[in-house]
Design a protein around this nucleic acid. Sequence first.
DNA 1: CCTGCACATAGAGTGGGCTTATGGGCGTGG
DNA 2: CCACGCCCATAAGCCCACTCTATGTGCAGG
Lengths: 311, 311
Amino acid sequence: MGVAEQEFPGFSGGLGRRVPELGALELLLAVARLGSLGRAARELGITQPAASSRIRSMERQLGVALVDRSPTGSRLTDAGALVTDWAQRIVEAAEAFDAGAQALRDRRDSRLRVAASMTIAEYLLPGWLIALRAQRPDTAVSLLAGNSAVVAERLLADEADLGFVEGLSVPTGLDSAVIAHDRLIVVTAPGHPWARRRRPLAAAELASTPLILREKGSGTRQVLDAALGGLARPLIELSSTTAVKASVVSGAGPAVLSELALGEELSARRLVSVPVADVRLSRALRAVWPAGHRPAGPARDLLSLTVASGG
Amino acid sequence: MGVAEQEFPGFSGGLGRRVPELGALELLLAVARLGSLGRAARELGITQPAASSRIRSMERQLGVALVDRSPTGSRLTDAGALVTDWAQRIVEAAEAFDAGAQALRDRRDSRLRVAASMTIAEYLLPGWLIALRAQRPDTAVSLLAGNSAVVAERLLADEADLGFVEGLSVPTGLDSAVIAHDRLIVVTAPGHPWARRRRPLAAAELASTPLILREKGSGTRQVLDAALGGLARPLIELSSTTAVKASVVSGAGPAVLSELALGEELSARRLVSVPVADVRLSRALRAVWPAGHRPAGPARDLLSLTVASGG
DNA sequence: CCTGCACATAGAGTGGGCTTATGGGCGTGG
DNA sequence: CCACGCCCATAAGCCCACTCTATGTGCAGG
């Protein structure tokens, strides 16, 4: 205190300062849906003055009026409608987070035990869990993430009811159903020389270039090594897909990532995909279960969700 | 106080209780990227004990260990890597929110003034603004949302530098470039009878069924009315896309929404799309500017981003 | 005109998160 | 081999933000 406050201009620091908290965003959504501060407050279990003040401080924070208050209720302003829709995206991501986190925690006393590979657990499972909760609200799910071998082991030891793997082959002793296909994509920052290539990259060139990689043992890396017919050369090894993406965006070098991981980054041109020629960077995503034991009960419910939504 | 606490079981209430705040998630991402609590703390401008305590309370809240601490640094646990990736999605949505909100506020002294239709402002513009900020960090952007007429008026009055419209035709006096196409999709909750239809819906049937709609004047609604060759019948009229989606999910009835609005809901099966037969529910999304005045400077930068990323 | 619902304001209490100050492991280089 | 760097943890105090209760004002409808 007393010393001047510091601003970190370019870097993303301080998002928490400029974006309202999740509770405030939820409140805004409730106001939009119910048309009244008081009703929204009641739904969230807080008092009307608390809601009033919270919306007001959000308006101060954003510098924009969000709701038109009147003695007959509250409606969104034009800006408020926009903000509400942007808030909705945050809340949806938060719901996925919540569904996933709850499954990581439950562990015991859960009626459906899922074992899944990282990529599937990261990008697909939360959505499935939300859908499952909508259908069967009382199904407690637990989630264990690991590679194909771990998934197989759990299933065969009857410590999991349903598994998901992304390998090239199905572990022995398991039956499977393909639920989707996943492509791996070579990406760079927009400034990288590869970003302007028109002619596809050759496998040899990819193999001889140092890449930003997940650590050894990651499914993505195994597929990459197999496709290159050798080992990829690491420029750095990082512990999460997130860290890899951040590193690529900041221009450290190219990486190979699942298309599932790249939605926003590609369409907003924060990352650029590089065409690749003679390499097969595709893999099937499969649901698996012990051979002969067709999934039943909650496992069957989840399985039917995944095959339905697979593309 | 004193009285028993209430839980709202089925309803989404209390997300803010179960999901860490944005600041905590940002911190977790920084730890993942930098490999140390202390470094992450420094990057976010807080002290090391603050970071330590914040991560710890997040672990308590989630009931899962997220980082392995050691005297040489901190690495994510397996669960931590998962949580970090889920957190990344939230933070990305928050960055889009921030980019949009900042543009809503700036209004004056901005070097690039954009006027856009609702759908574009809601779903595409935030991503563009993030990409633009990456290229030209010093470009202050202001955003005004309105229908085609408003956009045209602003451009012709030289109160905006670049516009985006989603109508069927281009307002007179403006030049334009198509940047993408948007389809409107009929959606219902999974339980609705239409969800199980195989044979496409006829236009007449759609026109005679009460729908959940945005208010009159919305671009989406105009296109729908035009496609139906008459007026859609409202079941309810709501003030934001968000409210419409929530209403459909809760089973109130069918709605017609832009595919841009439906990513997560469709793939997670919270909503189901209904095939439609003899109706043309597609429209071009266009960038527009005053006839003869080709965009230059920041407007040109933004325009080139949008045509590049359009589908 | 009075009742009901809408929102606003005022003042008090509380807790979460921050800071400073300290202490204990592990590595590294003189 | 010791000392200095980095890493993390704990303790104690401060402070702000959010909450609640209690009240006031405006509009609609019987």
